Computed example of a mutant assay.
Amino acid sequence: MKLSLLLAEIKCDVPLSCPMDEAKMNINQERAAAMLRHHQIKGIEPMMNRLNIIEIS
Protein backbone atom coordinates (compact mmCIF):
# COMPACT_ATOMS: atom_id res chain seq x y z
CA MET A 1 0.00 0.00 0.00
CA LYS A 2 1.29 3.45 -0.83
CA LEU A 3 2.31 5.52 2.17
CA SER A 4 0.17 8.48 1.01
CA LEU A 5 -2.97 6.29 1.09
CA LEU A 6 -2.12 5.06 4.57
CA LEU A 7 -1.53 8.61 5.85
CA ALA A 8 -4.77 9.89 4.32
CA GLU A 9 -6.95 7.09 5.66
CA ILE A 10 -9.80 8.21 7.94
CA LYS A 11 -10.35 5.93 10.89
CA CYS A 12 -14.07 5.69 11.68
CA ASP A 13 -13.92 3.05 14.41
CA VAL A 14 -11.99 5.13 16.96
CA PRO A 15 -13.89 5.63 20.24
CA LEU A 16 -14.64 9.23 21.21
CA SER A 17 -13.62 10.44 24.65
CA CYS A 18 -16.11 13.33 24.68
CA PRO A 19 -19.74 13.79 23.60
CA MET A 20 -20.25 15.12 20.07
CA ASP A 21 -21.96 18.25 21.45
CA GLU A 22 -18.67 19.20 23.14
CA ALA A 23 -16.65 18.53 19.98
CA LYS A 24 -18.26 21.32 17.93
CA MET A 25 -15.89 23.93 16.56
CA ASN A 26 -16.60 27.60 16.98
CA ILE A 27 -14.87 29.52 14.19
CA ASN A 28 -14.77 33.30 14.04
CA GLN A 29 -15.73 33.35 10.38
CA GLU A 30 -14.72 36.98 9.73
CA ARG A 31 -11.27 36.44 11.24
CA ALA A 32 -10.78 33.16 9.38
CA ALA A 33 -11.85 34.72 6.06
CA ALA A 34 -9.44 37.64 6.61
CA MET A 35 -6.58 35.20 7.28
CA LEU A 36 -7.42 33.19 4.14
CA ARG A 37 -7.45 36.36 2.01
CA HIS A 38 -4.21 37.60 3.62
CA HIS A 39 -2.43 34.35 2.76
CA GLN A 40 -4.14 34.16 -0.65
CA ILE A 41 -5.71 30.78 0.13
CA LYS A 42 -8.61 30.35 -2.27
CA GLY A 43 -11.48 27.89 -2.27
CA ILE A 44 -11.90 27.40 1.48
CA GLU A 45 -14.03 30.48 2.21
CA PRO A 46 -17.03 29.21 0.17
CA MET A 47 -16.83 25.89 2.05
CA MET A 48 -16.85 27.77 5.36
CA ASN A 49 -19.95 29.63 4.25
CA ARG A 50 -21.71 26.34 3.49
CA LEU A 51 -20.67 24.86 6.85
CA ASN A 52 -22.06 27.90 8.60
CA ILE A 53 -25.49 27.09 7.12
CA ILE A 54 -25.41 23.30 7.51
CA GLU A 55 -25.15 21.80 10.98
CA ILE A 56 -22.83 18.81 10.99
CA SER A 57 -24.41 15.78 12.64
Rank of each mutant, 00 (worst) to 15 (best):
M1N: 03
M1C: 03
M1R: 01
K2Q: 08
K2S: 01
L3W: 02
L5S: 15
L5F: 07
L5W: 01
L6A: 12
A8W: 03
I10R: 14
I10C: 04
K11N: 12
C12L: 09
D13Q: 07
D13G: 13
V14F: 10
V14W: 12
L16R: 14
L16W: 06
C18Y: 15
C18A: 15
C18P: 05
P19Q: 10
M20R: 14
D21Q: 02
D21S: 12
E22A: 14
K24V: 12
K24Y: 03
M25S: 07
M25T: 06
N26L: 10
I27N: 12
N28E: 00
N28M: 12
Q29R: 05
Q29E: 10
E30C: 11
R31W: 09
R31M: 08
A32Q: 02
A33D: 10
A33F: 10
A33Y: 01
A34R: 06
M35T: 04
M35K: 09
L36F: 04
L36N: 09
L36A: 01
R37V: 11
H38Q: 11
H38A: 12
H39R: 15
H39F: 15
Q40P: 03
I41N: 11
I41V: 15
K42G: 00
K42L: 07
K42C: 01
K42S: 13
K42Q: 10
G43V: 06
I44R: 00
I44Y: 00
I44P: 02
I44S: 03
P46H: 08
M47W: 06
M47R: 00
M48S: 03
N49Y: 04
R50L: 11
R50C: 06
R50V: 11
R50D: 02
R50H: 08
L51T: 03
L51H: 15
N52I: 07
I53L: 06
I54H: 10
I54L: 13
E55A: 05
E55M: 06
I56S: 11
I56F: 14
I56G: 02
S57G: 05
